[in-house]
Structures are given as structure tokens and as C-alpha cells.
Design a protein around this nucleic acid. Sequence first.
DNA 1: GACTAACGTTTTTTT
DNA 2: AACGTTAGTC
Length: 665
Amino acid sequence: MAEGFSFESLNQAQREAVGAIDGPVLILAGAGTGKTRTVTCRISNMLERGVAARNILAVTFTNKAASEMRERIGGMVSKAAAEEMTVCTFHSLCVRLLRGGIDRIGYKKNFAIYTGSDQVGLMKQLLVRKGGANCTLKPEQILGVISKAKNAGLDPSQQEDEFIGILATAYQNELRAQNAVDFDDLLCLGEKLLTEHEDVRNVFREFYQRVTVDEFQDTNALQMRLLQQLVGPPYHVCVVGDDDQSIYGWRGAEVANILQFEKFFPNPRVILLEENYRSTHAVLHTANSLIKHNIGRRAKVLRSTRVGGAHVRVVAMPGDAEEAEFIAEEIIEEKNLTKKAWEDFSILFRTNGQCRKLEEALRERKIPYRMVGAQSFFDRREIRDVIAYAQLLASPEADVALLRVLNAPNRGIGQTTAVLATDYSRETHKSVWEALCDPAFTHTLGAKARGSIEDFVAMIAGAKTRIDIAKENAGKVLREMITEMDYIPWLMRGCKTEKERDARTEGIGSIIQQLDDYSAKGRKLQAFLDAVSLSSEREDDLESKQGVTLITLHASKGLEFPYVYLVGLEEGTLPHKRSISEGTRDEERRLLYVGITRARERLTLTYCAKRMKYGEEVGCQPSTFIDELDGEFLLNSSYEEIMGREANEDELNSFFSSMKSMFDE
DNA sequence: GACTAACGTTTTTTT
DNA sequence: AACGTTAGTC
């Protein structure tokens, strides 16, 4: 048994939170106030007070957060108890729920989950089919509208724009016909299943006696409705979050969920965690002075446990090149001076486009760096292809997966044939797979195309039999199939560089290995596909890499660094110009607030007079947010001033060291 | 059906 | 500047 927790190690507000395990609880946890520790202690306390581990549910926003929380709990209670709890995301919770009972609402239990590019592919088809040639919207935008409607808890087919409504209806019908759901459907259908079926709802309510939701400020209306279905009287539900760190409004997060929590659950106990263990007083004072400009927030003032600290610098730069150069040079200098590690430094920016110049400056000086959020592993073409093949082996009627790989590698089934097959499948109300298997269809084709299709069908059916009937290892079967069809040589032909070839080959190896691991543990192919669809997780996470961290403000939430450089504080960049036109300046302010509160010791804010944007030089104005910062712990400076002074300091330092060596002698 | 050339686009991002 | 997409050609 692990050591549990002690009330003595907690501050008063934390103790109150840990002790309050009954009824609705809202924990407003400011940045760096020991939120995770409080939540894990609270769960540990549930166990001590006799709640069984299996009856505890903790919902997080990302898979990574879920595994971290489980780990933290595991360090506090017994490992077995940590394993028994349900710690997962809303989406994976819904997958479990739906794999068990989706047949009650008209889907088959082996439904496929369509993600990102699957959805785009489907929508592109629908656009063509519904005559959207003169439609100005891109498939992604239409999907965005549909997604937003679903997450707001609305019917996506009810649209102001008639054509989008038609597309939304067609999209939903198509998904259902293919026995597929998208990410948002997981939540919608999960909620629907619980709402419409009292028996299912009661099973869940009785099973999950204590529910905790982390990062509550990021939840949307639909997730709130789901939560309400999940938790019945006497509402043993605890939500944890910080409205000041709500930065995902643009994808549907409802700050109202946290601001008006009382509306959803009666008489909640509200606990404020305001004691900050992370940052210096200077950093916190500056952060507080900024965020108080937002109206309609849950008033909260972070108190520092670390008095004083270096002033927050606001540095004016001539241009983005100098900005990058300055930071790179200073990091080298500070590292030498303070014996910090590269990992102690971070550079935060609003948009990924700002990253390139910084990267260059670091690379030129041979400073190791790590970037968070580059292309997602699961978005890479070869990975999506391999997953599509795996999907076909699980359920060949998943049309999107089938169409994706029908001619990858080229096997003589081109666009013309694909369109014919799709048309036939729609006319006969069958899946594309069934169309390909149907002689009535294949005999309308030329001999060459028919032969290709027969080979393809035989290959997939053969492999599926080996897995389903002969119970062979799915990873092995998939690997052999990929080898047999010469997928890799085909993929290699499209590669321009050696590096790309290696990366892609490695990616394929990695994804099949993951499937191997699943099979080895005796888990089904479907479980693998669920895990893969639900994790957009970057393959390599932050801890596994070393160097200075380059990261967007959004991705920086939850992280902390001794040294933080927050760049590009310019009107149009931060706040971003689109947020100005959309009237979401408050969220941009919160974004800056999140960035500021990442700093433990030293914070440097920079802005440029001009910046390269889309290959053109653009003049910039300093962000109006800078004026909102209280001046007490601010130090205004400029590139010229600091770079000039540094030259002098170098001389001074060498003078001191020579004096020192004289005294030492 | 495959390959090349010109074109247009470009906030944030998880599930 | 760089990337992906599309359209046009072989």
C-alpha cells in the first residue's frame, strides 16, 4: 500500500477541497495552485472514506492528462486501486458506453470512428454529389459548422444556410449508412443513449458514485449535458478548472459551464485555490493586473508564496529576426551564467508561423530545441493508410477507409471506377465493399478493372478470414498484407528526400508494432482502432526530448518553465487580428495570461516594430495588452539597449574575473 | 490513369 | 516562403 496523503501537506483551501467528497463541488484552481495534487488527494480521500475504486470516475480533456492522473493517483494509493478506477476522456468514456449499447439507438456495435481526414474526404464527396461546385466554403469549414452545432447541443441539420443544412443532413445519413460516427457523435450519441434509456442511465449512475471533471473550463454544452445524464442526485460531482484559462472558446468550450455551474447542479460548494506555488511575486502581480481587465469572471487573485523576484521585462525589437537573435543569444548567456539546463528555457508564441525564425536562430547557434505540436503522427498519410487497412480488416463496410486505400498503392482502380462503385452502392443501398463483391456491379466494368477489384477483394477477405476465423495475430497479417501489395515501395516513390523515406518507413513500422502489442495482450483489432482514433496524441511527447521548448500559447497550458520568453506581443498577433474582428479579445487576454503564468522565475515579453508575414514585411504596433500590465514589476527595455549593454557587461565580467583571480592568489 | 505546373492559402487544436 | 490542392497534359 502506498503512503496515501496527509492533510498537513495541504493549505487550507486544498484541505477543504480534499475533504468535500459529497455533493456538487466547484474547485476554481488558478494557475500553479496545486490543482492536480488536490484532485488526486481528494480521490485518495474517497477511498479512505470507503468508496470503492471501481466506482470512481475521473474525466480529463486529453489522453495524456488521463494517464498522468492515473499515475499520480497510483503513487498515492495502491496500484491496484488506481487501475480499477475509470480515468479517461469524455470521448473514450462514450466509446465504452456505445460499444456496449449503441444498438439501442440504431447503430451496429462494430461502428467505425471517422476522424479528421476521413470526415474531410466524406464531405468532399458530398459536396460534389450535392452540386456544391459553386460553393465558396471548404469541406473543413462545413464540418466546422456541423461540429460546432453538435457541440452546442443543437441539431446540425438545422442551419441558417440552407445548403449547409442539406450537407449536414447528407453527412449524418452517410455516416449512419456506413455504420460510422465522428468524434462529436460519440458525445451526442452517448448523451442520447443515456437520456433515452433510463435503464442504461441508472446502471451508469449507480456505478459511478463519484465523478470528477478536470479542465472544466474547456468543456462544451454537449459535455455538460452528458455530465448531467451521468450524475444523478445527490450529485456527487466535482468539477475543477479556471475560467481565466479558458482558451478554447473557438472550438466550442463554454465558459458558462464554469461561470454558471450553480445552474446545472444545485448549491455547489465553491472552493478557490489562489495560493500559487509556481511563480515569483513579480510574475503573478503582472498576471493579475492583466486578467482583471476581463469582465464577468469568477474573481480570483493569485497569491505568491515566493516573494519578490526579477522584474518582468518588456523588450522592444526592431524586427522578428532580431527578436529571435536576441533570445537565442541571451539563452546561451544565461545558461552559462546560471548553469540552467536547456529544458529550463521556453519560447511561447501565438501562431505556428512565428516559430520558423526562432527555430533558425536556435539552429544557427547549435542550441538544442524541441517543438511541440508539429504534424500529428496520426495525420501522416502512410499512418492513415495503414490504419485504413486495419479498419477494413475490422469492418470492410467502412466506405471512407475503403475508398482511401482502394488505389493506394496503385492497383488499377482509379477515380472513374471508384465513382462507379460509389454510385452503385448508393443505388442499391449497400456499402462500397458490398458493391465490389457484387458480380452484378463488377460485370458492368471492363475486364481489367474487374480483375483488379477481384484481387483487392480477395486480399482483404483473405486477410480478414485469417484474423477472424484462424485467429491469427492481426499485426502479423496486416504486415504481410502490406508487404505483399508492395505498399512501401510505392510510398517510397513519392518521397523526395532520404529523410522522408526513413521517416515514413519508420512510421509504418511503429504503427504496426503498436497493433502487434495490442494483439500480444490479447486485445481485439477494434480496441486498437478505438485507441488509435481517440488519440491524436503526438507520438513523441515533451519529456522524451530535450532542449529549449518552442511552443504555442495554447499548447503551453499546464506546463511551466523557469525562463519564459513570450514573443510577438503585437496588435494583430496577440491579440490575433481575427479575434479582434470576432470580438473575442477577452480570450486573447486569457491566452496571454496563460503564457505569463507559465513562468516560474523570469519572464520576458517582446514585441517587434516589423515582422515578416506570408513572405512580406509588415509594420506592427505594440499590443494594447502591454498597457494593461501594472508597471510595478515591469522593466521596459529594447533590443538596442540590451544588446549594447551586454557588450559592456562582457568587458565588466572579464574585469571582475581577473580581479577575483588576483584575490584568490 | 499518372505526372507536372501553376495556383491559392495561411490562428489557436483536442478528441 | 512554403505548403497543399487542383487543373491540365501526356
